[in-house]
Design a protein around this nucleic acid. Structure first.
Lengths: 217, 217
DNA sequence: TAGATTGTTAATCGATTAACAATC
DNA sequence: TAGATTGTTAATCGATTAACAATC
């Protein structure tokens, strides 16, 4: 099921693709049929050549003078990322992150992520609803993960619970963890982790701001 | 007020610093006095030389054979990032992101970010509380931003409102926007934007997972 | 002293950007 | 045809990694 081309693509390219997708879908809604790299580049403040390379990586092909067909390009990027068919996931931890992720149409529909169930350790949360989904107790995790063939887990618990809950996900057969906690989690070699590091993003903002301030004076 | 060294540091370095900080604070709590790059590298799965270079960028100095003094190193990184004194910010939009950011001690205390007020356009939210802070109407934004000398805005509104609210922040004198929406916002040249692109992170997870899957078979 | 570790310079690697031929 | 745009190869740039001398 894994896309063989995807694993060879440079990481910066992979991280840029979703922003192209977003803009292309906007163009699609507006009824535009073709788009050039220059056009995308202007919109996203990137280099047109870089975009052409990124698009080539996905297997998309354009026509000189005309550009790329918008719908075709969307399909190419989506199938490259594996976002055209649903990826099933479980979410652990009830809080703002959970809420935002599940109720966001861009993530749920646009990226093919389908959160099948929400789990929590806290008995107070169990039975309540998060964006229309009932919160289940952790005990049900292993059984459901196996029956539903889910192998992506979204970790959105408090920092102090992160490692413990990560272990539970892994023992339930989860192979990829999207980590929204601020804790570095230890996982076996065959488990993939992607950290959403909000502090790193804040550091980047501080730095860009510092650069902007000094360049003005 | 801007840190002059910060603007020269490579962006990858800046983004790694918060993870060092996190680990160092853990060591500090454990009462450890010195740490070597090798130790940090093992913990974070990075190259020791890279860490040494990153630390040198912040101005930290170690002693051969012994390593770096933990407390000194924390101070060095924090002051480099400008996180030792508070950065005042306003938050626009009441939802999961807002909740998570404000109530998270790592961000609020660890990064020196101090969210002074929360604003919203939706009359239903106004007057309610987010993590102990009253939600204020957008009309009060400009006046308060000027009086309190706030120039960082956290944009956590719905995608459809993103550009409109960004414009309001800018006209209130905000100079840096931490964008949690999925929309690319247009800003004047002198305004800094840092996008928290959750879809990019998901794409990275898909790619790493694909790579791991194929390497196993 | 010997070994571990820092600090720094040089080599490698990979990504971005530039140049340009092909083409509709 | 002329001009815009793709596709691709080469040049540049910057970050990572390797090598090694200095040092406690």
């Amino acid at each position: 099921m894994a896309n063989n081309a995807l694993k060879c693509a440079p990481m910066p390219t992979i991280r840029r693709l979703p922003s192209y997708l977003r803009f292309l879908k906007l163009l699609q809604v507006r009824g535009r049929e073709y788009v050039s790299c220059t056009h995308i580049a202007n919109e996203l403040n990137l280099d047109p050549t870089q975009i052409r390379k990124d698009l080539a990586t996905t297997g998309a092909a354009g026509t000189p003078k005309i550009g790329y067909q918008v719908t075709e390009l969307i399909n190419s990027i989506e199938s490259f990322l594996g976002w055209n068919d649903p990826t099933y996931a479980f979410l652990v931890g009830v809080n703002g992150v959970a809420d935002t992720l599940i109720s966001n149409p861009e993530i749920q529909k646009g990226c093919g992520l389908d959160v099948l169930a929400v789990f929590d350790d806290n008995s107070a949360s169990i039975g309540s609803e998060v964006a229309g989904k009932e919160v289940l107790p952790m005990e049900k995790l292993t059984d459901l993960a196996k029956r539903m063939h889910v192998h992506i887990g979204i970790l959105a618990v408090s920092d102090s619970q992160a490692q413990k809950m990560s272990d539970k996900l892994i023992s339930a057969g989860i192979k990829a963890i999207w980590n929204f906690t601020h804790t570095k989690i230890d996982v076996p070699e065959d488990v993939t982790v992607e950290n959403v590091d909000i502090a790193a993003s804040l550091a980047a903002l501080s730095a860009k701001r510092a650069a902007a301030e000094t360049s003005l004076s």
